[in-house]
Each structure stands twice: as C-alpha cells, then as structure tokens.
Design a protein around this nucleic acid. Sequence first.
DNA 1: CTGAAAGCGCTTACAG
DNA 2: CTGAAAGCGCTTACAG
Lengths: 343, 343
Amino acid sequence: MSALRLEDIAKKAGVSRSTVSRVINNQPNVSDSVRKKVLEVINLTGFSPNAAARTLVSQRSNTIGLVLPHSVSTFFTDPYYPHLIKGISQACNHYDFTLALFVAGTKEYQEKLLPRLSSKGFLDGVILQSGHHADQSLILDLKQTNLPLLVAGRPLNEEEVCFIDIDNVAAAEKAVRHLIINGRKRIATITGPLTSTVGLDRMNGYRNAIGGSSQKLIDDFIQESDFTEIGGYKAMNKLLELQPDAIFAASDMMAIGAIRAIRDSGREVPKDIAVVGFDDLPIPAVNELQLTTIRQPVVQFGFKAVETLIELIENDSPIVKKVLMDTELIVRKSCGFIKNNDW
Amino acid sequence: MSALRLEDIAKKAGVSRSTVSRVINNQPNVSDSVRKKVLEVINLTGFSPNAAARTLVSQRSNTIGLVLPHSVSTFFTDPYYPHLIKGISQACNHYDFTLALFVAGTKEYQEKLLPRLSSKGFLDGVILQSGHHADQSLILDLKQTNLPLLVAGRPLNEEEVCFIDIDNVAAAEKAVRHLIINGRKRIATITGPLTSTVGLDRMNGYRNAIGGSSQKLIDDFIQESDFTEIGGYKAMNKLLELQPDAIFAASDMMAIGAIRAIRDSGREVPKDIAVVGFDDLPIPAVNELQLTTIRQPVVQFGFKAVETLIELIENDSPIVKKVLMDTELIVRKSCGFIKNNDW
DNA sequence: CTGAAAGCGCTTACAG
DNA sequence: CTGAAAGCGCTTACAG
C-alpha cells in the first residue's frame, strides 16, 4: 500500500508510466478503455503518487503557508484566529491545497522561520497575518524571497505588497454615523492599539463620521486601548468623566468592558450611554448584552485570502492586488435603536 | 536568489555537488578550508536547497500533520486549541519540523482528507487530536496508511495505537479528594460528554474519589453536560434540587456556568456550595471567580506530543507508546479552603 | 492515443 | 577528504 510507484501501476495495467501519469492528472489523450483499466488498478492498490516527486518536477507543492508573526500575541486569546483558520482551511480544502502553519511565538522563533519559508520546493505562497508596525521588516524579507505573498490586514506601508483586509474605515464610519443619525451628541471612541492599521483605520472611520457631521471632533473623546475587555473597562472609566452619551468601541471585547464600566458607574446602556462594538464573533456575551456591532466576515475573509493568494500564484506577473471586504452593521439593543440595517 | 541549485554553488566554490551537499548537511569528511569556502558562497548567494528534491531522495519531509477531526467542533470557541497549537508549533520549530494543519470542518471535508494525508513524500507523521467516539474509524484509516500516528487524547479503543493524554482520572480524583478531605459531604459532578474519553475519565476520577471515601456514590449526583458555560449552568440548576454542598465541574467553562446558577439561586460560593473546575487556561473569568481548578499543561502537552511523534518517526519498529502527563491542583477561593498544594 | 527518454535537484554509496 | 554516477518517483515534451 505504500512502496508502490507509478512504474508498478503501469506494469500491472500493461501500459507505460506516461499513461498512468496522464490518468492520474486527468489529462485528455487517453482512450476510455485504457483509462478505465488504469483507474481500476489504482483503486485496487490504493496507489497515490509521491508528493515530493510531483513537487520536484512540477515546481508546485500545492501548499501555502500561514504566518502568524510575533506581533499577533492575541492568537491565544482572541477567537478571531480560530475563525480565520477555519476560513483558510475551508478554502485550502476546496482548492486542494495544504496549509502549513507558522506561529512565531517569540522574536527568536520568527527569525528562524524565514529560511524555512523561503526554501524552494516547499511553499507555493504565503499569507502573512499582519497590519502591525513591527512586521514591516518581516514583510520586506518575505517579499525578497519572491514567494507570492499576501498580507492579511492592511500593512502600514502599502507599496507593492498585495493585501486583503476588511474596509475598517468605512465600517467604523458606518457605526458612528448610526449613532449620529439617531441623535447622540457626545460620541466617544475606544480605539485599538494605534501601532496597528486596524486600530488606526477604525479610529479614522470615527474621525470621518464625526467630521462629516455637524458635531465637533474632540480629541479627548478618543481613548486608545488594546482590544481586550479589561482595556475597554479602563478606557471607559476615563471617558466617563467627559460625560459621553455614546461609545464606539473598536472591538466587541472592549465594548463588553466598556458596558461593565458604565454599569459600575451607575449608568444605563443604552439609556445614558449607547454602545456600538466591532467584530460580531459568536461570543456568548455579545448576544447576552444585545450588542450593536459591525459584523466582519472572518471565515469568508480567510477563504477569500486563499483565493487571492492562489490568483497570485497562478499569475506570476507581479501584479499588486488590494482587496477590501465589506462589513455589515448589526443593530441590537445596546445602541438604543430599533432595527435599521438599510444604509 | 532563487533559481540556484547545488550545482551552481559547487561551480562557484570550485568543488563538486557532493561536497556542497556534505557541507549543507553538516557532515564530517570535509576539510576545514573547503568547508569554509563553500559556506562563504552559500552565505553570499543566500542559497537554500530545494525541499522537494531533498524529501524525494531522503524520504523525509520534516513535516508533520495535525488533524482536528470533525468531532472537535469546539475548535472555534475553546481556548484549549490555540494553546495546544502553540505548544506544537514551539516543538516543531525546536526540532526543525514544519506543521501542516488539517481542520475537518465538516464530515465531507474529513473524507477528502485521507488521501492527502497518506500520500507518500508529504508527511513524516500525524498527530490526531481526538478522544471521541466518532473518530474510531478515522484512527483505523490513518493506521492503515502506515504513517507514524500519535493520538492526542486517549482513544476509546486503545489497542495498538500510540497516544498521549493527561491523566484525567488521577486529576479528577485529586480534585474531588480535595473536597472530601476538607469536609464536603454532598459532592456532585458535572461531566463532559460521555461520548468522549475526557468526559468518561474525569467522571471516573470522581467515582474513584467518592468510592475510596466513606461517602456513598449517588448516581443522581452525576450530571452529564457538554463543556460549555451554558451547559454548566443548566446542569447546575438540576443538581441544585439535590442540595449538594460541592461541585466538581469537568471544565472551567462549566464551573463558571455552575457558579452563575448557584448565585442566581441565592446561594453563595464557596459558603453554601464549593466549586472546583478543570483546565486553568488563562481565561479572565477563572481568576475573577477565584476558581480552584486542575491545571493541565496544555502548551507542554503539545510540545511533548511532537516529541513523542518524532520518536515514533525515528524508531520505525512498531512500538506502541502511551504517555500520560500529570496535572496540578490549583487552590483558589471557590473551594472554600486556604492554599494547600501539597498532596 | 501511447511510449521512450530526459530531467526536476538533491543524497549517498562507491571508488579513489 | 573528494568526485563521478546512480537513483529518489514523478511529469512532460517529443516522436510515432
């Protein structure tokens, strides 16, 4: 069941190696009767061709790498990543690719990664999950290997690197506009780390929405935080002094922390302060709190990332692709308004 | 930087292919001066050997697969998996292996997996995360491929398959004994699904502890649940009618749900009902609730799993290995006792 | 439609 | 210590 080679199948089927190869690769130019006989032998023996030999001659491994750099320290706590991996896995399976996973737990590990990633005959392409300041040099290194590279998350420096992201600016804008349209006058925001493009873009969406309205942009209404629940709690406590009547939190976890802080201060959501979050991953608390939020299509995002990378692999001209995916505002109760998804 | 072959390096260094190969593979029998010159050329050119060619001739890919079968539906919500992957990644990096990840989102996907997993020249071995009833046939199929196979989690049918697990029985026993020793008289348990060995083993630990004491084993004190918070909540509500004074929950998430149910009923933890959980993953709630629990070394577990698989790969005699790892009781406040880690 | 032959880029006895 | 040669198991022009 294992030491079989193309040669052996050929002998048993009474044909040549070439013909067996053609059958296996579903090529035309094989008579039906021969094809049938070969297929029979293959099924009988359980033969499957040697992947390394195939890769060597075809220069294609049908394997892609997913790199989670050191900056992604929330890999172990944020439910975002399993969902991302789910989408990527699904797409890999669909397109008959295999996924190699590289988790750079430490800086040192990350440095050991590059030679392995770039060794020829191993990966057809790489998805780098990023969007963080600290990954600029990694992106450059990866680019230098000439491997097809797709960054998942908008990189700080966009030039000449392909990336896929959700449209964070538009999404945040949509969320904040929802608060404005429905009468909130003192809208504050809790941002993610401003060392990352996710953090920056969602903040800029807030800025755009406020700037595009009759309201004044107040710098103190912008509190930087870290995407965690406890971070949201702390940021909210600071914001409370400014008496906001609405909060746009750049992640659901921070929104949850903010709601806790609001309640601890004796105020009510949404009566005193409306809250809108971001993510809408299936976390129990999101539903429990009836959180209005931006739903980002994480699984589809992962799927699309693989599709985009495959395009890059197939298309060896050095095209620069930028893909932005849309999001959806999910109106629940925390923003204080009835359902209104039409924009 | 990419189209380079061994041949090219050899030419530039003025030696033969064989010699360059020896240098790259750190073999002896190369004079220092020649080695130095070759190394120089390699560094200068940034050459790295073609992985497929190496694999083809050496019959080793230095890649292992991690399979998360369909039964692992909690992959997307349970923080256990990212931590497991962390440990596995660390070990892979340490031993210069690459990790290929196979997430079987659906049954159909799972079936498409087998041919890919078993194709020669691709994986040196496989870790199957399991312990569920439904995976028996997958284990058998995988065994038939003759790939070195390590099951992570005790399989239902242990014969002739290598596995690694934590000692769930001993751990649960330890947890329940802690409650007994400290005076609780009506100790109930909320189990995981009894279709999985994790669920079964932790229940049996409970049985052992109660059986080994002067207390009576009461079947109604055993409530089957599903490892989730809401499951724990529901199970606890049923148990409350029986007026237990302590609960051993087979996961922290269930313990959290149980505590919520206890409080909702107007009772106090630990005064009225002591609670001990299982896992001690870094979830904020565990600390917040001061949950006494069994700490399982997930990251180390993943690391050890890789080490064990590598042994299996290196040692091609068909040895059957069974590895059980120890756990630690972490005493916090939910069990109602002061710190006492000495057992 | 089919087969013989070359070649993908390495490693590894073998001979010296 | 070093090199020439065979071979790992495939795919793919090429010729027929």
